[in-house]
Design a protein around this nucleic acid. Structure first.
Lengths: 228, 228
DNA sequence: ACTAAACCTTTAAATATCCTTAAGGCCGGC
DNA sequence: GCCGGCCTTAAGGATATTTAAAGGTTTAGT
């Protein structure tokens, strides 16, 4: 899951980034409204965290720009109580949720989880394919009863495959959803991570669940071809 | 365990602080209601000790503010008998317990212990992971039969890890619960204390119980990964 | 109030982990 | 059987963590 943070205070951005990365989210950030609006319009995110008070382009304007692009990405707004005249104002602008500063990180995390659950991305507490499970709350991966240790990138990759299980996802889709804009599309880092993910998932006598479709992409499923 | 003291008399604050620190609690304090309410709302405490009579914002008002933030932190109120018309008044406001001044420190300590036991933070007299035990009453740490001497900060750190045993806690969570607001989040004092804690706990041929999850935090547990 | 010890924090260097890059071999499609 | 795309492995670079040591502050004893 990829989250965009737009806030002009570097310390806050860092605080949110660290905390969210510790919870296995992929983070991109912008420290002014202009850059934030650009990323929000052009990037691929599952959630945007947007400060109300911003230089260059206010939070409200950024939100408007994003919404114009017909995107219905969940947007969580951060406000200072004194700034907030009317909370309905925020919803009218198109925000999905808001939080008044200061807040505890755990509070934010609850809101983030709730928002990410909405767009039918997450049905229950678990994703499951064969005997492979991903717990969306604890971020624990298991193959059968054995817990599997994954790095952040590997986790984000597997999560994306799990969300799209039984469907073919292209290399570019993966790159868009799991890597940030710095990623070099000509490098083979996706393939490398897929390899190490397969190695970790297939240990023992477990069957391979990540199937390659040459020229098309990858599919996480019990069988390469669907049979009914 | 971190305690917030809100009292306008510096001498009382000092008295409580010294005594509680001697019992391995981490203390923060405020000498007026405004500051107290701010800390109470924004900080992370396991208990708040609140004087009824305060300048700027009365104890009752401070309590109301804290409770508005939906927090159910235990609050211990301190009153002078003459101030207290009706003790039910305090409970109605949301206090969990009260004490009338003057009192003996040991009395206070009993109340503090009782309150901290409530929120399922402490089950019995001991925390235990492998052959490592922490006695919540005597504050004695043992690895097997060997007693281990820890400094206050090390103790608070281990206690926090013990409360959250078998769960990953991030560096920021640790900072929030074990250090006070003065702590510089960019220094590596947490890491340094973890190192010295590990050194003390792992002496001899004991296995390491504090496991690192790069980019995510630390977990106190028998094994890094769980197998069921 | 002074001194010494204990403790906590800071800095910096060493180490470990993770991510990316690059090269060579393998496999599947044609 | 050839070619291009994919996989694997290893090495290098970047980032994160651990360790060591010195400096500063607090605490405790006299």
């Amino acid at each position: 899951m990829k989250i965009l943070i737009i806030d002009d205070e570097p310390a806050i951005v860092q605080f949110l980034k660290d905390g969210l990365e510790a919870n296995m989210y992929v983070i991109e950030s912008a420290t002014d409204g202009e850059r934030g609006a650009f990323l929000g319009r052009t990037g691929t995110y599952d959630l945007i965290i947007l400060d109300y008070m911003l230089p260059k382009l206010s939070g409200a304007e950024v939100l408007k720009e994003i919404r114009q692009e017909n995107k219905h990405i969940p947007v969580l707004m951060l406000t200072v109580k004194s700034e907030l005249r009317d909370k309905d104002e925020l919803f009218r602008l198109g925000a999905d949720d808001y939080l008044t500063k200061p807040f505890l990180f755990d509070e934010l995390l609850l809101h983030v989880r709730a928002l990410l659950k909405r767009p039918a991305k997450v049905e229950g507490e678990f994703y499951k394919v064969d005997n492979l499970t991903l717990n969306t709350r604890t971020k624990i991966i298991r193959r059968g009863s054995q817990e599997i240790y994954l790095t952040r990138r590997e986790f984000a990759l597997l999560e994306y495959l799990m969300i799209n299980r039984n469907k073919i996802v292209s290399r570019n889709q993966i790159l868009e959803h799991v890597w940030d804009y710095n990623a070099d599309p000509f490098s083979n880092t996706v393939e490398t991570h897929l390899a190490s993910l397969r190695r970790k998932l297939n240990s023992g006598r477990n069957r391979n669940l990540i199937h390659t479709f040459t020229g098309r992409g990858y599919k996480l499923a019990l069988n390469k071809l669907s049979e009914r």
